[in-house]
Amino acid sequence: MERTVSAADAMVTAPGTGTPLLDGMPRQRTAPLPVAPTPPRIPAYAPAARPGARALGLLPTPADTPFTLGYAAVLVVTSLFARYADPSLVHSLYQESSTDVVHLVRSPVLVLVASALWIAGGLTSSYALVFLLVLPALERRIGGRRTAFVFLLGHVLATLATEIPVGLAVLAGHLPGSSLHRLDYGISFGVAAGLGALAGLLPPWPRRAVLTVFGGILLADLIQFTDPLSNWGHLLSLAIGIGTWPWVRRWQRTARQGARAHG
């Protein structure tokens, strides 16, 4: 007895899909299996930084500017002492700390260090403000030891470059012997060198603006001829800072690479 096969029974379906295929036809394409959509990745919630937090992040901290804050603390102490101590004692200390020719010949290292412990004009001096703006920014970019090196480089070289000609002029008879005891102390040479170095790490337009404004102020002081040796020293120390651009740029790259490696 023959079994009658209906068209529905003879229908062949695609494996795993149930899709009917035509019997007796060549192999036909089948629709791919449906794939469940991948749920979108939801990023972790990161709250936006508050404006106050961003502003606080610009302030120097002991972690990122130890040299600047430590040095600033010393300068605050010496400035308060100079303001409230006996004037005759303060003047005597200024004289002993002066980087004049006589002291440079007797004890050059001691007097070069001691002269950098005072701020000429005290805490209200313009160089005190520049110190607080420039040195933290430079230290964050190249580190504390390198910032100290730039500061001392400007302080020492500009001092020697202005005082050695005085000694030679006295020996030649062009200046009186009293010029050997000239009162000279303060942080201005080191600060000017730091500003010159920092300018090399800025974008072109801010760099030009900083150098134009600060250089113009120094030139105006020199034209007034009130203190030509100090005025020349400030220009020299600014030029010394500019001369460190290859170093500070390389140091900044090194510091960034180190930060990425530890991050």
Rank of each mutant, 00 (worst) to 15 (best):
R141G: 00
A85P: 01
P62D: 07
V101M: 02
T124F: 09
D86G: 10
A31L: 12
D9W: 00
G121H: 01
L75S: 00
P43G: 14
S125H: 08
G57F: 10
R83N: 07
G121W: 05
T68C: 00
S97G: 03
A55W: 04
G70E: 04
R54Y: 01
S115H: 07
P34D: 02
P47Y: 09
A44F: 01
D86W: 15
A72I: 12
R141I: 04
L59C: 04
A137R: 00
R140V: 07
L21G: 05
T38K: 14
A72L: 13
H91C: 04
G122L: 11
T78V: 10
A128N: 03
A53L: 13
T99S: 15
A116P: 05
E139G: 01
L93A: 09
A46I: 12
P136G: 04
A116Y: 07
G18A: 11
L138M: 02
L104G: 02
S98T: 02
T124L: 14
R140F: 10
M11L: 10
G57K: 08
L22P: 13
R145T: 01
P62R: 11
G24R: 02
R54W: 08
A63F: 03
L132F: 03
A82R: 02
L59V: 01
Y71W: 14
P136S: 00
R54L: 15
L56S: 11
A55Q: 01
D9C: 06
